[in-house]
Simulated assay, not measured.
Amino acid sequence: MVSLSSESDSITVVKQAVGRAAACRVKSGMIIGLGTGSTTAFAIQYLGGFLRSGALSNIRGIPTSYQAAALARRYGIPLTTLDDIDHIDIAIDGADAVDPQKNLIKGGGAAHTQEKVVDSLAEMFIVVVDRSKVVDHLGVVPVPVEVLPFAVTPAMRAIQKLGGKPEIRMATSNKDGLVITDQGNIVLDVKFDRIDDPGELNRTLNTIPGVVDSGLLVYSCPMRSISPLEPRLF
């Protein structure tokens, strides 16, 4: 029998390995999209270490959240903004679910709107996930949907008509109240029994008045695998 602590330690070790593998794809002079999440946090940590050691130089990061920005500053990664650059070389980010077509559900960290913007601009998008995030079809985990506070109730009604079961995301641990995004909006976690056409659902959700963006990330071109490790990097 494997203890819970042993399982947790094993997951952490694997996330560290994948974070390092992703960071190793970065070359000096690159502009990097810095995602949000536990595995991406390791990649940011390794990038900072490569800078300090001299293995990397002259890189700049585009953070997708306050959390990513704070981590980058902690590890000495210079930051820039979308206003000041004309391209992104690599974006490194995680996902909550990945189907066989490499469609993603993002938003566990309530940063999917910024993540989708940054990831879509990158010449190479590296997705770091552990094996538990790889699913036969989307719908296993809820789809986060960012909504303007003013429009939460009508948006929930519209989503219900699509067959979704929306719930307002509440803060956990020692913090009470709603989860608020960096843009000051509300997150709905929407359960669908099965998502057979993620692209169409994404388009439909995003046409609901008051919806900022869904956590569905759909790609028409394949992402490449860069690691034979148990967690996959696409």
Rank of each mutant, 00 (worst) to 15 (best):
S3D: 11
S3V: 06
S5T: 15
S10K: 10
G19K: 01
G19P: 01
R20A: 11
R25Q: 13
G29H: 03
I31F: 05
G33K: 08
G35I: 05
T39L: 05
T39V: 15
G48S: 00
G48I: 00
G49S: 11
G54R: 04
L56E: 00
S57C: 09
N58G: 12
P63M: 12
T64V: 06
A68T: 03
I77M: 02
T81S: 13
D83L: 10
D84C: 12
I85Q: 08
D86I: 12
D89L: 00
I92M: 10
A97D: 14
V98M: 11
Q101V: 13
L104K: 08
K106N: 04
A111I: 03
H112E: 12
H112C: 01
V118G: 12
D119T: 09
L121F: 09
V127P: 01
V127D: 00
V128I: 14
V129W: 05
R131Y: 13
V135G: 01
D136M: 14
H137C: 15
G139Q: 05
V140L: 11
V141H: 10
L148W: 02
P149Y: 08
V152P: 01
P154I: 04
P154E: 13
R157F: 09
I159T: 09
E167M: 09
R169E: 04
T172K: 14
G177F: 13
R194N: 09
D197W: 15
D197E: 15
N206W: 09
I208W: 01
S214L: 00
L216G: 03
L217V: 14
Y219L: 14
Y219R: 15
I226F: 14
I226S: 03
L229Y: 05
R232Y: 04
